[in-house]
């Protein structure tokens, strides 16, 4: 193979450019330019589709990994914001249209009145909870040194970690952050590398309810996180979450 002349960039035809685009081999600038070509040039888009279809079965070799439940929750939230709820749209063309139905609107206004009354009762009985304040934690290592300084923004589901000490990591491993609420089982908040400050976005419902004791802990795990869903490697550091 090595006796062949080098294959220069300028010698690529569209099929090869498309294959490189699909594999992701090109430089970032070239990738952006080719991405625009896919949108604008149907012939080039067909070349890209050819490779996507033909190479697609290579994904057979990839092991499926269940995604955390909050990914779907976020998809639902995003769709709820950007698209009309499909349940309010008529199913078949020419079928009865809910929005034009007098019966629907009469029923809707009756139910709305009831909902408003119930809300008033709930608000009266349970005044609004104050805005959840940020919390902090210092995660201590076994040798008594501080491992991580952590601040938690429960309203926005942000956990910011700052490594406070050099920690040894075996190659091809990562850190995983766990939350232990009121003595329950550890729940993963995600993986990170402790080379500098890092922010992990978590579902707000993973945050401990106000006033409930909770700990954070960091373990060493294989790349991609613990395969078992529970901490599988050594614990680097842990500590209680406090209000400020």
């Amino acid at each position: 193979m090595t006796h062949e002349p080098p294959f220069e960039d300028r010698d690529r035809d569209d099929s090869l450019l498309a294959a490189e685009y699909v594999l992701g081999l090109g430089e970032p600038d070239e990738r952006r330019a080719l991405g625009r070509r896919v949108e604008e040039d149907p012939a080039f888009a067909r070349e890209v589709a050819f490779w996507e279809v033909r190479l697609g079965s290579l994904a057979n070799a990839v092991k499926p990994v269940p995604a955390p439940a909050w990914v779907w929750t976020r998809i639902e939230q995003e769709l709820g914001r950007v698209v009309p709820r499909p349940t309010t749209e008529p199913r078949a063309p020419g079928g009865p249209n809910l929005w034009d139905s007098l019966t629907f609107w009469r029923g809707f206004s009756a139910v709305s009145g009831l909902v408003a009354a119930v809300c008033l009762v709930i608000i009266t009985l349970h005044p609004f909870e104050p805005v959840r304040a940020p919390m902090v934690a210092t995660l201590m290592m076994d040798d008594g040194r501080s491992g991580f300084m952590v601040s938690v923004d429960p309203m926005n589901g942000k956990v910011m970690l700052m490594p406070a000490a050099q920690t040894d990591m075996p190659p091809e491993h990562t850190n995983e952050l766990w939350i232990i609420t009121d003595g329950g089982p550890p729940q993963s908040l995600g993986t990170f590398t402790a080379k500098g400050p890092v922010t992990i976005t978590v579902s707000p419902d993973m945050m401990p309810p106000k006033g409930m004791p909770a700990k954070l802990a960091v373990s060493v795990e294989p790349m991609g996180g613990s395969p078992t869903g529970k901490p599988s490697g050594p614990m680097l550091a842990s500590g209680d979450i406090h209000g400020i």
């Binding site: 994904a59 990839v62 990914v71 995983e176 993986t191 990170f192 976005t201 996180g225």
Partner: peptide, 13 residues
């Protein structure tokens, strides 16, 4: 698809 994304990105988040 999550497996596919993890293999490329290597980071859970």
């Amino acid at each position: 698809l999550f497996g596919v994304c993890l293999r490329i990105l290597k980071e859970q988040g």
